[in-house]
Structures are given as structure tokens and as C-alpha cells.
Amino acid sequence: MFEARLASSATFKKVLDAIKDLLNEASFDCSDAGIQLQAMDNSHVSLVSLNLKSDGFEKYRCDRNLTMGMNLASLSKVFRCSGSDDTVTIKAQDDADTVTFMFEAKKQEKISDYEMKLMNLDQEHLGIPETEFSCIIKLPSGEFARIVRDLSQFGESIVISCTKEGVKFSTQGDIGTGNVKLAQTNNFDKEDQSVIIDMQEPVSLTFSCEYLNSFTKATPLSNQVTLSLCDNVPLVVEYQIPDLGHLKYYLAPKIEE
């Protein structure tokens, strides 16, 4: 028996909004530790890694490890039926081919449930080695979304260059070029409004605007985003989900052969 009750269905809705551009379907792996998801987009350029810790749920029970394959468009339809203040309880029997979502309004004045068919997905799991990153940049998530949106107007790629002076986002296209430089801020008492750069070595890598834009769909989950860069290694874009876990995206760089 699997049962997980989350105080805010809106949080799960935000997670879904943050991954459904990249993935049509995905397997949610449920264990004692919580709910995990790892999946690549169809072109194998990016990977989504979601971790929701069991102790972030109001109630969590997982008697046996369970993998639930779901169509994310269908799952979005289910969550569209929840109110913004509803709690959600996710339930499945062992070896079941369906999952049930129950939405409860705060004062129990409305309770709805939706049963959805599960899918058998044959998904490839990637082994991701621990990496010592050359540069780790923390910045406000809204600022990152803004920069990616602005620069995407001009080109298909963004070069992220990091030195100890700051981080520079650059693009070029048919109409010209664009550059945004962010210096490290000293606003340490307001960490989620700061730009914090931890640089071991300078790095400069090129990434697709389209994918970066998809990642910024996670902006409502967290005030801050962390970019981890290292030469010849995929970029990691990480959003912490307060009290619940994290959502990480990996993106393969564009590299001259």
C-alpha cells in the first residue's frame, strides 16, 4: 500500500508545470525515502531529477517500493481539478494499475477523487557521477528566468561565462548580440535575493535557450536557483522545493567537435 498526503496540492501542480514541457510521461519511484523521478527528454539532451522527501509529506506510507508510470498531460488534467488550497492524497495498492488522487478543501467542505490509469514505461536510468564543479552560482530564480527570456529573443544559444568578477550571460543572432553581467552581491542577510558565486576555476559553456527556458518553468517553486558548471560536463540547474525536496535539471552543453 502506498499513501502520501501533501498539505499543498498547489506545490505538486507547480512541480508538474515545471516538468511537463520536457517529458510526456515519467515513472515516479516510491520508496520509504520518498518519491523520486529521473527522466530524459526525447532527444536525450536534458534530464529531470525530482526528489520529494517522505518527511516533507503530512502523511507518508510506502510498504513496498513502487514505480508508477504516468502520462504527464493526464496527470495535469487531474491536478487542474484541485483547488489552490486543497490538500492532496496520492494512493495506490501494491501492484495496482491505477493511482488515486484525493483533493480535500481546507474545511473538508469539498472532497473529490480521481483515479488514473498507470503506464508501464521502460525508462533508461542514467548513472550520474559526483562532480567537482568549477563554478557554483546562486541567484534569484526570477532574475535567471528574466535573463534567459530576454536573451532568447536574439539567439538560439546562451554562453554562460563565470569568473571571480561575476557571471556573464551572452547571446548572438541575426540582429546582433546581447550580454547580461551579474556581479556578486553583498546582501548576505537576504540570501535568496543575492548573487553568490563560488568559483574554483573560470568556465565558459554554451547552452540551448529552448531548454533553459523550459527549466525556468520551475521558477514558482523557489526564490533561488543554483547553476553548477564545469568544463565539458552538463550544466545542473537546481531549484530547492522548501521543506519537500528539490528539482534538478541537467543540460548537455553545445561543444565544438
Binding site: S46, T206, S208
Partner: peptide, 14 residues
Amino acid sequence: TPPQTTLLAFFEIC
């Protein structure tokens, strides 16, 4: 723009 790589060039399927 340089060509796009895939994650399979960096990580192994397990």
C-alpha cells in the same frame, strides 16, 4: 553556434 551534444556522451545508462 557549436553543435548540441547529448547526455549520453557524459553519463552511462545503468
